[in-house]
Amino acid sequence: MDARDFIKIGMSAERTLVVPTERTVGHFVPDMPMVYATPMMILEMEMASSDAIRAHLQPGWITVGTEVDIRHLGASLVGAVVRVTGKVTAVERRVIRFEVEAFEGERKIGDGRHARGLVNVEMFTKRLGAK
């Protein structure tokens, strides 16, 4: 399967969340501040990227995250409204590359690049079962 046949540069999606306690650094690491954790921001960036292309995938195919290069630029407190975007910037045969950003209001709190690999679920599951 060649992603270039159905994924186009510029496809994008956006996700919004209110930062819950469960997604803060302090929730995972005692004595750390109760601010939005970098891995949780990356999770939302990956999910927004996946959202941007999911409807265009053929039945039986998914994408999985394969690369992240992210900067977390500013802290956000519990209750902050965070908006995350993922936009396709390049499409290779089985790799889709994205520009990702996160904002609290107009303030950019994160940015970077992300890649997702195109995977056939049945073949992937068989390979995992062989391990």
Rank of each mutant, 00 (worst) to 15 (best):
G105A: 13
G65V: 11
P39S: 11
L43N: 08
E122M: 03
E99A: 14
T16P: 02
K131Q: 13
R113S: 14
T89C: 06
I42M: 10
M41C: 11
G129I: 02
A48P: 03
E14M: 07
G112L: 13
E14C: 04
R23I: 02
A13F: 04
F103E: 07
V88N: 02
R83C: 10
L118D: 03
T24V: 04
I62A: 05
A130T: 04
Y36A: 04
T85M: 07
S76R: 03
A52F: 03
E92P: 01
R127G: 01
V18Y: 01
G10A: 09
G10S: 11
A80Q: 00
K8A: 15
V88T: 05
T66Q: 11
K87G: 00
T24E: 03
V88D: 02
M34I: 01
R4Q: 11
T66S: 14
A13Q: 05
A102D: 14
R116W: 06
V95S: 05
A37H: 09
E104L: 09
G60K: 06
S49D: 05
R54N: 08
N120S: 07
K108Q: 13
I42S: 08
D5W: 01
H72V: 13
V81M: 06
R15Q: 12
T85E: 08
A55E: 08
D2Q: 12
S76P: 06
P20H: 03
D5M: 08
E99S: 09
V78C: 02
D111V: 10
M32T: 15
A55D: 11
A90F: 00
V100Y: 06
